[in-house]
Design a protein around this nucleic acid. Structure first.
Lengths: 237, 237
DNA sequence: CGTATGATTGAAGGGTCTCAAAATAGGTGG
DNA sequence: CCACCTATTTTGAGACCCTTCAATCATACG
């Protein structure tokens, strides 16, 4: 059941048993990557979509002086490059953060899937727009929040998303990033990320150590982050 | 020919005459809005998609203390809320900047359109992912660039997009924004936006006055902005 | 046990914000 | 056409947040 977690975050209830089976059948193979491996380079022609089954993956863009900006972080259950199906080429790079297992859905199989099950097609479209909604929230995070708010918001989002696929109990979850990765996601320097983490720790809101996030005061976290999970379209629409 | 400009930026060559006609027929009506009117409120159920025919529209999110962050700016030829078709509800607000004319595509008509013309469905999907690609570039802009780079990048993007729909000759184009709007798009204060504009003017790169942008040195503009138009997927893929 | 990598801390500088005021532009009524 | 009013742009000064550069500390690994 490769698509189990994918469906958990995406209104499984709207699909029929036939559609579920068809989606499952469309996966052609499973591939594994090591940690910190480039999986797709920008400009490459994409021929299949990867559903993340295990591990963490990020998408990023490079600046002129070699600085990176993360534009997305993917958790199990996410399609990592489904947008490459209509787009054909990607405008950014994709890399693994940890060891990773992905299920491959050839674009040809997706085309057929959508022809046979328009409802599924709409759901895949929905899935890519969920990514876009997160993009918008990241824009808000970078544009309106200070460093503390940005880090808090990042933690809040990932925590909530992991909770939707049963990888977080709401107060503690894995997040296999270095402080420098966190910095690249939040548009700050690694040094400052460290100081922000100290403050969040001292204010007894959240700790981040050894790739593990422990939230001690989720209300304070959400307040600092101005976080509301509506944009993740949790079940119940 | 309501969808003329829409098609200019989106690989019209991939569509047949039948498909073009079907798209044109799906528009049920045309609506006009005044300047600075809220068009969609976040959380509202969306029942039709609006194709922008004339004028400028922005999408934005509100922070706690009443500060706004623009997450998208739309020019003629853009679908403003096509993502509302799969999403059903929006996570953000939409407002007009100028007087605006939009063509309405009921979601029911779009559903039928996609069933009858899968190719068109793919193209509409593509269109929403183009917005997502712009979102990513905005994330990069806010995360990696300083104030000058952000403003320059914003000008560069809008200029290029207007050029794709014949509303810019490459060096001069309309941009009916206040400096405070520009600030809200770039994640800076209006005061600082003003200082940035002065510097861009003094460095003889670009001027912005009375809702009109005049680019005097496009190479310098693109250099300051670290701008590359690849993410807009200009024709030729 | 030595080495590499990531985390942590300090000090100084710069970019952006805030608050406040002045100048300019645009629109309206006399 | 001028006078007035409002909205927007422009400028200044000081404070604050974050960056930069550098050094130290901790940790994992061969």
């Amino acid at each position: 059941m490769l698509s189990r977690q994918f469906l958990m975050g995406r209104h499984r209830e709207d699909l029929s048993a036939t559609e579920l089976a068809a989606l499952e059948d469309a996966a052609a193979s499973v591939t594994c990557y090591g940690a910190r491996e480039e999986m797709v380079h920008h400009g490459d022609e994409v021929t299949h979509a990867m559903l993340l089954v295990e591990g963490f993956v990020c998408r990023y863009m490079d600046g002129l002086d070699g600085d990176r900006q993360l534009v997305a972080l993917h958790v199990p259950g996410d399609f990592v490059d489904l947008h490459g199906f209509p787009l054909r080429k990607l405008d950014h790079d994709i890399a693994s953060l940890t060891e990773v297992k992905v299920a491959n859905y050839p674009h040809s199989a997706l085309s057929q899937l959508i022809l046979d099950h328009p409802n599924l097609g709409r759901m895949l479209w929905f899935s890519t727009l969920l990514d876009a909604a997160m993009h918008r929230e990241w824009i808000f995070r970078l544009g309106r929040l200070g460093a503390i708010g940005r880090v808090a918001h990042f933690f809040a989002e990932i925590g909530r998303r992991l909770q939707m696929v049963d990888l977080s109990d709401g107060c503690s979850f894995p997040l296999p990033l270095h402080q420098s990765d966190l910095a690249e996601a939040c548009g700050i320097t690694a040094v400052h990320a460290n100081r922000v983490l100290r403050e969040l720790r001292e204010r007894k809101i959240v700790t981040f150590k050894g790739g593990q996030v422990v939230v001690s005061d989720i209300l304070a976290l959400h307040a600092v982050a101005e976080f509301d999970d509506g944009y993740l379209y949790p079940s119940g629409h």
